[in-house]
Design a binder for these strands. Structure first.
Length: 279
DNA sequence: AGGCACTCCTGAATGC
DNA sequence: TGCATTCAGGAGTGCC
């Protein structure tokens, strides 16, 4: 499932593969995937040049000529691939951007959860979750002051806090579990009970974990591949995610799996103890 | 405010 | 073997 490191890996791949190319025509095979309706989507994109591909959190932002932009979210299994136009379509190719050089940019999405929205350039931040998205998880944009204020202004469990893109952009189920394990904080620990030391550690762990994951070209679990069709390797560096019943790399206690915020949640019951308010 | 549940989807895993 | 059920989840919506 693409989170920030995977989306950034895709963005870099797309930049190398399709930046500067021109769209001949677009084929939409699953109408609900695009906005506005498929007819407007296709006619607006016809003849446009791909000027740049940017990223904000887990959202990709394509910039086209004539002040047109497209916000694309891959959700669970969305993938882009660049292939010769003569290559047969696969079952789950839902949107095909036919390019004038004879290649296709194809969007493939087994579960059909991904969405693409065309907007005038400059209006990108009005689309869906981008309207309320929190700071990018970098040292410059996610400051200690912001994070501690935000944590203390709420009392949600830490897993919910970090999954909420309006608090911090880019983290998903895998990296939230990993970052909480690194910081030795329980997924249900109320956000307003973290100490300053924990907040400092959490912040640094977010940065280092995402940086390491980007360097490994993201995590490949189940079927996720990046734009060039390659798997990432970060799954080999996961400490708790999908490791229920296996020993904690730090203390050897068996990793547990519980449900938090409708998500499978992995943690070490020894390293990540829930602290009650009057402890 | 915050915790749920539900929805969108398909394929893999599990159950009998 | 085969058919039915369960599970996985990012984000949006809606309810209590």
């Amino acid at each position: 499932m693409p989170e920030l490191p995977e989306v950034e890996t895709v963005r870099r791949g797309l930049e190398a593969l399709v930046k500067g190319k021109t769209i001949k025509q677009v084929n939409v095979r699953y109408d609900k995937m695009v906005s506005p309706n498929p007819d407007e989507f296709k006619s607006a994109l016809k003849g446009k040049k791909i000027l740049d591909i940017e990223r904000r959190g887990k959202y990709l932002i394509f910039r086209f000529s004539e002040n047109l932009s497209m916000v694309s979210h891959l959700r669970m299994e969305g993938k882009y691939a660049v292939l010769p136009h003569t290559e047969p379509l696969s079952k789950h190719d839902h949107v095909i951007f036919e390019l004038t050089d004879g290649s296709d940019l194809r969007y493939n999405d087994t579960r059909k959860f991904g969405r693409m929205n065309l907007v005038p350039s400059g209006k990108e931040l009005t689309v869906g979750g981008l309207a309320t998205i929190g700071p990018e998880p970098t040292p410059e944009t996610l400051t200690f002051e912001y994070l501690s204020q935000r944590l203390r202004s709420k009392k949600v469990g830490m897993k919910s806090f970090l999954l909420n893109q309006s608090n911090v952009a880019g983290l998903g189920n895998i990296y939230v579990d990993e970052v909480l394990w690194l910081t030795k904080v329980h997924p249900l620990q109320p956000s307003n009970t973290l100490t300053d030391e924990e907040i400092k550690a959490l912040r640094l762990n977010i940065f280092s974990e995402l940086e390491r994951a980007i360097n490994a070209h993201g995590t490949t679990v189940f079927s996720y591949l990046n734009a060039a069709g390659h798997a990432g390797s970060f799954q080999n560096q996961l400490n708790v995610y999908h490791r229920q019943g296996k020993p904690c790399p730090r203390c050897g206690t068996l990793i547990e799996k519980i449900k938090v915020a409708q998500r499978g949640t992995h943690f070490c019951p020894h390293c990540q103890k829930l602290r009650l308010p009057n402890d």
